[in-house]
């Protein structure tokens, strides 16, 4: 199982003299869930975008053992799907039409719609529990349903590797859990390789096999959640004092920022 699905060799991203990422090496294993974490502006989304070839970069990106420079945009799109943060659909577009567009990389100019397309769209809608919403315009859905519709589009693309940029941001806790459980289900039942940028450290600890912490365009820590999510790493990467305890439910590391509650601080304030 330890075969590289997606990797980077000497990756450089950014303008000359202002490199966001300057010489990064990475190998992401097939069938694993990897979470990339880090402070705002550390280059974690940049890394995801460069890996997906949406952002031009120097160095080599390897996908399924092949240099992506030798693959066409369409060939890459058949192997790797990527969901940007907060994508926008034109007003009035239905869920079914959106998900059907996930089939574009598989369609030929003349042969527009096949049985395989139909089956892929149906399966994507079923997996995301969006079948009932197929005829509804995206803009009439709640934020959580909308995110699931976009994930369904990426699923309809039927790629082995799925990249997601902050898929849970702006969602309520119920939809956050639903989206992440869906990704785990995809990983377990369909063997998809999943790479996601996450802001919530506890989600990274809970849902990922491997956590990569980035700081100023470099990999500051890389390993299992237990290895990476520690008080020392959090201090180094986020500059934050935090306690890390074992989550009583799963045993995964749980981050508790060591800030002082307002009531305690008010009590400590010298009275005038």
């Amino acid at each position: 199982m330890d075969e590289e699905a997606l990797g980077a060799r000497g990756l450089v991203v950014g303008y000359r003299g202002h490199e966001v990422i300057d010489g990064l090496d990475l190998a992401l294993m097939r069938g694993r869930i990897t979470a990339i974490i880090g402070a705002n502006g550390c280059g974690k989304s940049t890394l995801l975008w460069a890996l997906s070839r949406l952002l031009p970069s120097e160095g080599t990106v390897v996908l399924d053992g092949r240099d992506t420079a030798t693959l066409s945009t369409r060939e890459i799109a058949r192997r790797l799907s990527v969901l940007p943060q907060g994508p926008s659909a034109p007003e009035g577009l239905t869920v079914a039409d959106l998900v059907a567009r996930g089939r574009y990389p598989h369609q030929k100019w003349l042969r527009q719609w096949s049985e395989a397309d139909e089956a892929a769209v149906r399966e994507a809608l079923e997996r995301t529990n969006m079948t009932a919403f197929a005829g509804r315009p995206i803009d009439e859905l709640s934020g959580g349903q909308r995110q699931k519709a976009w994930i369904a589009m990426a699923l309809a693309q039927r790629t082995d590797t799925v990249l997601l940029d902050e898929p849970t941001t702006y969602l309520d806790i119920g939809h956050q859990a639903e989206v992440l459980d869906l990704l785990v289900e995809l990983n377990v039942s369909a063997g998809r390789t999943i790479v996601l940028v996450l802001h919530d450290l506890n989600q990274a600890a809970r849902y990922a096999d491997r956590v990569i912490a980035m700081e100023r365009g470099r990999i500051a820590a890389d390993g299992t959640p237990d290895e990476v999510i520690t008080a020392e790493t959090l201090r180094a990467v986020f500059g934050v004092e935090a306690h890390v305890v074992a989550d009583p439910h799963s045993g995964a590391p749980l981050v508790i920022p060591a800030s002082v509650p307002p009531a305690v601080r008010r009590a400590a304030q010298p009275t005038s």
Binding site: T73, E75, A77, S81, P90, L98, G102, Y104
Partner: peptide, 23 residues
């Protein structure tokens, strides 16, 4: 009429269009 699919993809942003294999 030849760029219909491309325009549909572009309507979701250049990044999504590219991620769907459009040049």
């Amino acid at each position: 009429f030849g760029v219909i699919r491309g325009l549909n993809a572009l309507s979701m942003g250049a990044d999504v269009a590219r991620s769907l294999g459009q040049r």
